[in-house]
Computed example of a mutant assay.
Amino acid sequence: MAAKAADMPQYTPPPVVTAVPLWDWSGFYLGLNAGYGWGQNGGANMSFTDPGAAFFGPCLVAGSCVGGLSYDTDGFVGGAQAGYNWQINQFVLGIEADIEYSDMNGGAGFASFVPPFAAGSFTSTSEINWLATLRGRLGVAVDRTLIYATGGLAAGGVDDNFRWGYPTINQVYVGDGSDTEWGWVVGAGLEYAMTDNFILGAEVLYFDLGSTSVPGVPVAGFIPPAGTSITANYDHDGVIARARASYKF
Protein backbone atom coordinates (compact mmCIF):
# COMPACT_ATOMS: atom_id res chain seq x y z
CA MET A 1 0.00 0.00 0.00
CA ALA A 2 2.86 2.37 0.80
CA ALA A 3 4.43 1.69 -2.60
CA LYS A 4 1.23 2.54 -4.39
CA ALA A 5 0.99 5.91 -2.58
CA ALA A 6 4.53 6.71 -3.60
CA ASP A 7 3.74 6.03 -7.25
CA MET A 8 0.86 8.55 -7.34
CA PRO A 9 1.65 11.93 -9.05
CA GLN A 10 2.40 14.75 -6.68
CA TYR A 11 0.15 17.85 -6.68
CA THR A 12 1.94 20.99 -7.82
CA PRO A 13 0.14 24.27 -7.09
CA PRO A 14 -0.16 26.69 -10.05
CA PRO A 15 2.34 29.54 -10.14
CA VAL A 16 1.24 32.77 -8.57
CA VAL A 17 0.66 35.42 -11.25
CA THR A 18 1.22 38.96 -10.06
CA ALA A 19 -1.09 41.42 -11.86
CA VAL A 20 0.69 44.28 -13.56
CA PRO A 21 -1.08 47.52 -12.57
CA LEU A 22 -2.41 49.69 -15.41
CA TRP A 23 -0.79 53.08 -15.82
CA ASP A 24 -2.60 55.84 -13.94
CA TRP A 25 -3.25 59.10 -15.81
CA SER A 26 -4.22 61.02 -12.67
CA GLY A 27 -1.99 63.94 -11.76
CA PHE A 28 -0.53 67.29 -12.74
CA TYR A 29 1.54 67.79 -15.91
CA LEU A 30 3.51 70.48 -17.74
CA GLY A 31 4.72 70.46 -21.32
CA LEU A 32 5.59 72.07 -24.64
CA ASN A 33 3.96 71.91 -28.06
CA ALA A 34 4.61 72.99 -31.64
CA GLY A 35 2.71 72.79 -34.90
CA TYR A 36 1.07 74.71 -37.72
CA GLY A 37 -2.13 76.73 -38.07
CA TRP A 38 -4.40 77.41 -41.02
CA GLY A 39 -6.90 80.27 -41.05
CA GLN A 40 -10.40 79.85 -42.48
CA ASN A 41 -12.57 82.42 -44.30
CA GLY A 42 -9.63 84.82 -44.48
CA GLY A 43 -9.57 88.26 -45.98
CA ALA A 44 -11.19 91.66 -45.72
CA ASN A 45 -14.83 92.22 -46.57
CA MET A 46 -15.46 95.91 -47.15
CA SER A 47 -18.66 97.68 -46.14
CA PHE A 48 -19.53 101.19 -47.29
CA THR A 49 -21.70 104.00 -46.00
CA ASP A 50 -22.57 106.16 -48.97
CA PRO A 51 -25.74 108.27 -48.93
CA GLY A 52 -27.24 108.14 -52.39
CA ALA A 53 -24.40 105.84 -53.61
CA ALA A 54 -22.79 108.92 -55.15
CA PHE A 55 -19.19 108.41 -53.96
CA PHE A 56 -18.42 104.67 -53.78
CA GLY A 57 -21.26 103.53 -56.03
CA PRO A 58 -19.82 104.48 -59.46
CA CYS A 59 -16.42 102.86 -58.90
CA LEU A 60 -18.00 99.67 -57.51
CA VAL A 61 -20.32 99.41 -60.52
CA ALA A 62 -17.46 100.03 -62.96
CA GLY A 63 -15.15 97.55 -61.21
CA SER A 64 -12.57 100.25 -60.54
CA CYS A 65 -12.56 99.60 -56.78
CA VAL A 66 -12.95 96.40 -54.76
CA GLY A 67 -15.53 95.32 -52.20
CA GLY A 68 -13.21 92.82 -50.54
CA LEU A 69 -9.93 90.93 -50.66
CA SER A 70 -9.75 87.19 -50.05
CA TYR A 71 -6.64 85.44 -48.76
CA ASP A 72 -5.51 82.63 -46.47
CA THR A 73 -3.64 82.96 -43.19
CA ASP A 74 -1.23 80.31 -41.99
CA GLY A 75 1.97 79.87 -40.01
CA PHE A 76 3.88 78.27 -37.16
CA VAL A 77 2.39 77.97 -33.68
CA GLY A 78 4.15 76.83 -30.53
CA GLY A 79 3.93 77.21 -26.79
CA ALA A 80 3.33 75.51 -23.46
CA GLN A 81 0.51 73.64 -21.74
CA ALA A 82 -0.34 72.72 -18.15
CA GLY A 83 -3.16 70.59 -16.82
CA TYR A 84 -4.52 68.05 -14.36
CA ASN A 85 -6.18 64.67 -14.98
CA TRP A 86 -8.49 62.53 -12.85
CA GLN A 87 -8.88 58.87 -13.85
CA ILE A 88 -12.06 56.93 -12.98
CA ASN A 89 -11.76 53.35 -14.22
CA GLN A 90 -11.00 53.78 -17.95
CA PHE A 91 -12.34 57.32 -18.16
CA VAL A 92 -10.05 60.34 -17.78
CA LEU A 93 -11.37 63.79 -16.95
CA GLY A 94 -9.05 66.78 -17.16
CA ILE A 95 -8.61 70.50 -17.41
CA GLU A 96 -5.87 72.17 -19.44
CA ALA A 97 -4.63 75.68 -20.20
CA ASP A 98 -2.15 76.63 -22.91
CA ILE A 99 -0.63 79.72 -24.44
CA GLU A 100 0.91 79.88 -27.91
CA TYR A 101 3.08 82.14 -29.98
CA SER A 102 1.50 82.37 -33.43
CA ASP A 103 2.92 83.38 -36.79
CA MET A 104 -0.39 82.87 -38.61
CA ASN A 105 -0.62 85.70 -41.14
CA GLY A 106 -1.66 86.49 -44.68
CA GLY A 107 -2.48 89.32 -47.04
CA ALA A 108 -3.42 90.33 -50.54
CA GLY A 109 -3.23 93.30 -52.86
CA PHE A 110 -5.12 94.44 -55.92
CA ALA A 111 -4.43 97.23 -58.41
CA SER A 112 -6.85 98.53 -61.02
CA PHE A 113 -7.18 101.17 -63.66
CA VAL A 114 -10.58 101.57 -65.27
CA PRO A 115 -11.05 104.85 -67.20
CA PRO A 116 -12.25 107.42 -66.36
CA PHE A 117 -11.20 106.52 -62.78
CA ALA A 118 -7.69 107.02 -61.45
CA ALA A 119 -5.42 104.05 -60.76
CA GLY A 120 -6.60 102.26 -57.62
CA SER A 121 -4.55 100.40 -55.04
CA PHE A 122 -6.14 98.08 -52.44
CA THR A 123 -4.22 96.02 -49.87
CA SER A 124 -5.03 94.18 -46.65
CA THR A 125 -3.17 91.98 -44.13
CA SER A 126 -4.24 89.92 -41.11
CA GLU A 127 -2.29 88.28 -38.31
CA ILE A 128 -2.92 86.22 -35.18
CA ASN A 129 0.17 86.79 -33.03
CA TRP A 130 -0.79 84.78 -29.92
CA LEU A 131 -3.46 82.30 -28.91
CA ALA A 132 -4.51 80.89 -25.53
CA THR A 133 -7.14 78.35 -24.49
CA LEU A 134 -8.75 77.00 -21.31
CA ARG A 135 -10.31 73.61 -22.04
CA GLY A 136 -11.92 70.59 -20.45
CA ARG A 137 -10.81 67.13 -21.59
CA LEU A 138 -12.72 63.83 -21.62
CA GLY A 139 -10.96 60.67 -22.72
CA VAL A 140 -10.76 56.89 -22.61
CA ALA A 141 -7.52 55.26 -21.44
CA VAL A 142 -6.23 51.87 -22.49
CA ASP A 143 -3.28 51.45 -20.15
CA ARG A 144 -0.67 53.95 -21.45
CA THR A 145 -2.77 55.20 -24.40
CA LEU A 146 -5.29 58.02 -24.03
CA ILE A 147 -7.78 59.15 -26.68
CA TYR A 148 -9.67 62.32 -25.79
CA ALA A 149 -11.98 65.12 -26.92
CA THR A 150 -11.51 68.67 -25.71
CA GLY A 151 -13.25 72.05 -25.79
CA GLY A 152 -13.57 75.38 -24.04
CA LEU A 153 -12.64 79.05 -24.22
CA ALA A 154 -10.14 80.70 -26.57
CA ALA A 155 -8.51 84.12 -26.71
CA GLY A 156 -6.06 85.61 -29.18
CA GLY A 157 -4.27 88.75 -30.25
CA VAL A 158 -5.22 89.87 -33.77
CA ASP A 159 -3.86 92.59 -36.04
CA ASP A 160 -5.70 93.74 -39.19
CA ASN A 161 -4.91 96.61 -41.52
CA PHE A 162 -5.87 97.83 -44.96
CA ARG A 163 -5.20 100.61 -47.45
CA TRP A 164 -7.96 101.39 -49.95
CA GLY A 165 -8.23 104.08 -52.59
CA TYR A 166 -6.58 106.13 -55.30
CA PRO A 167 -3.09 107.36 -54.32
CA THR A 168 -2.53 109.41 -57.48
CA ILE A 169 -5.40 111.73 -56.60
CA ASN A 170 -4.97 111.48 -52.82
CA GLN A 171 -8.27 109.71 -52.12
CA VAL A 172 -7.11 106.97 -49.75
CA TYR A 173 -8.51 105.36 -46.61
CA VAL A 174 -6.29 103.47 -44.18
CA GLY A 175 -7.35 101.25 -41.30
CA ASP A 176 -5.35 99.57 -38.54
CA GLY A 177 -6.85 97.44 -35.77
CA SER A 178 -5.12 95.53 -32.96
CA ASP A 179 -7.13 93.83 -30.24
CA THR A 180 -7.62 90.79 -28.00
CA GLU A 181 -10.53 88.68 -29.23
CA TRP A 182 -12.47 85.99 -27.34
CA GLY A 183 -14.11 82.86 -28.67
CA TRP A 184 -14.24 79.08 -28.38
CA VAL A 185 -12.24 75.99 -29.32
CA VAL A 186 -12.93 72.27 -29.84
CA GLY A 187 -10.70 69.38 -30.83
CA ALA A 188 -9.37 65.89 -30.20
CA GLY A 189 -6.06 64.26 -29.42
CA LEU A 190 -4.05 61.14 -28.69
CA GLU A 191 -1.38 60.67 -26.01
CA TYR A 192 0.96 57.84 -25.08
CA ALA A 193 2.95 57.52 -21.85
CA MET A 194 6.47 56.59 -22.95
CA THR A 195 7.66 56.26 -19.33
CA ASP A 196 6.10 56.79 -15.92
CA ASN A 197 6.58 60.55 -16.38
CA PHE A 198 7.15 61.35 -20.06
CA ILE A 199 4.09 61.65 -22.36
CA LEU A 200 4.03 62.25 -26.13
CA GLY A 201 0.94 63.23 -28.07
CA ALA A 202 -0.70 64.87 -31.08
CA GLU A 203 -3.69 67.19 -31.16
CA VAL A 204 -5.96 68.98 -33.64
CA LEU A 205 -7.96 72.05 -32.56
CA TYR A 206 -10.51 74.23 -34.32
CA PHE A 207 -10.79 77.77 -32.91
CA ASP A 208 -13.10 80.71 -33.61
CA LEU A 209 -12.24 84.17 -32.29
CA GLY A 210 -15.21 85.84 -33.93
CA SER A 211 -14.97 88.85 -36.23
CA THR A 212 -13.47 92.32 -36.06
CA SER A 213 -14.33 95.56 -37.82
CA VAL A 214 -11.66 98.11 -38.68
CA PRO A 215 -12.85 101.59 -39.71
CA GLY A 216 -11.06 103.46 -42.46
CA VAL A 217 -9.52 106.86 -41.77
CA PRO A 218 -8.91 109.37 -44.60
CA VAL A 219 -5.22 110.11 -45.15
CA ALA A 220 -4.00 113.66 -44.64
CA GLY A 221 -5.40 116.02 -47.23
CA PHE A 222 -8.33 113.77 -48.20
CA ILE A 223 -11.76 115.08 -47.16
CA PRO A 224 -14.44 112.61 -48.28
CA PRO A 225 -18.05 113.68 -48.82
CA ALA A 226 -20.09 114.09 -45.64
CA GLY A 227 -21.72 110.90 -44.43
CA THR A 228 -19.47 108.50 -46.33
CA SER A 229 -17.31 105.91 -44.58
CA ILE A 230 -15.61 102.60 -45.18
CA THR A 231 -15.02 99.63 -42.85
CA ALA A 232 -13.11 96.37 -43.31
CA ASN A 233 -14.57 93.27 -41.63
CA TYR A 234 -12.40 90.27 -40.75
CA ASP A 235 -13.15 86.73 -39.50
CA HIS A 236 -10.60 84.99 -37.26
CA ASP A 237 -10.97 81.22 -37.10
CA GLY A 238 -8.84 78.29 -38.11
CA VAL A 239 -7.34 74.88 -37.42
CA ILE A 240 -4.18 74.02 -35.49
CA ALA A 241 -2.38 70.67 -35.73
CA ARG A 242 0.43 70.20 -33.23
CA ALA A 243 2.68 67.69 -31.51
CA ARG A 244 3.06 67.84 -27.73
CA ALA A 245 5.31 66.53 -25.01
CA SER A 246 4.44 66.61 -21.29
CA TYR A 247 6.03 65.68 -17.98
CA LYS A 248 3.65 64.13 -15.44
CA PHE A 249 4.47 64.73 -11.79
Rank of each mutant, 00 (worst) to 15 (best):
V158Q: 12
G221N: 06
A3H: 10
D179P: 00
G109D: 07
N33Q: 15
D24N: 15
N89Y: 13
P21G: 13
W86D: 06
T150Y: 04
Y206N: 04
A188C: 08
E203Q: 13
R137F: 01
D72N: 14
I169P: 00
G183P: 02
P9F: 13
G189E: 02
T231G: 08
R242Q: 14
G78R: 07
I240E: 05
P116I: 01
S26R: 09
A226W: 02
Q81G: 05
G31P: 11
G35L: 05
N161C: 01
G183I: 01
G165F: 07
V239N: 12
I88C: 06
T18N: 12
N85F: 06
F110C: 07
G216P: 05
A2P: 03
V239E: 01
A44I: 01
A241V: 14
T123R: 14
F113T: 11
G175P: 04
V158A: 14
A53D: 14
Y84D: 09
A19D: 08
G189H: 08
N197W: 04
V204G: 13
K4G: 14
E127D: 09
A232L: 06
G43D: 07
V174F: 04
G183E: 04
G120M: 09
A193D: 02
P218Y: 11
A6C: 11
D24E: 13
F222M: 07
Y148K: 09
P116D: 03
N161Q: 11
W164L: 09
F76C: 07
G189I: 03
P116A: 01
Y247I: 13
A6T: 07
I169F: 00
A132E: 05
S121Y: 09
G63Q: 06
P51T: 05
A2C: 09
G210S: 07
S126D: 13
A243D: 04
P225G: 03
G165M: 11
G63C: 10
A97I: 02
A243C: 03
V92E: 07
W23H: 15
L69C: 08
S112G: 05
S102Q: 02
S126G: 11
Q40P: 04
W86P: 00
F249K: 08
R242A: 13
V239G: 09
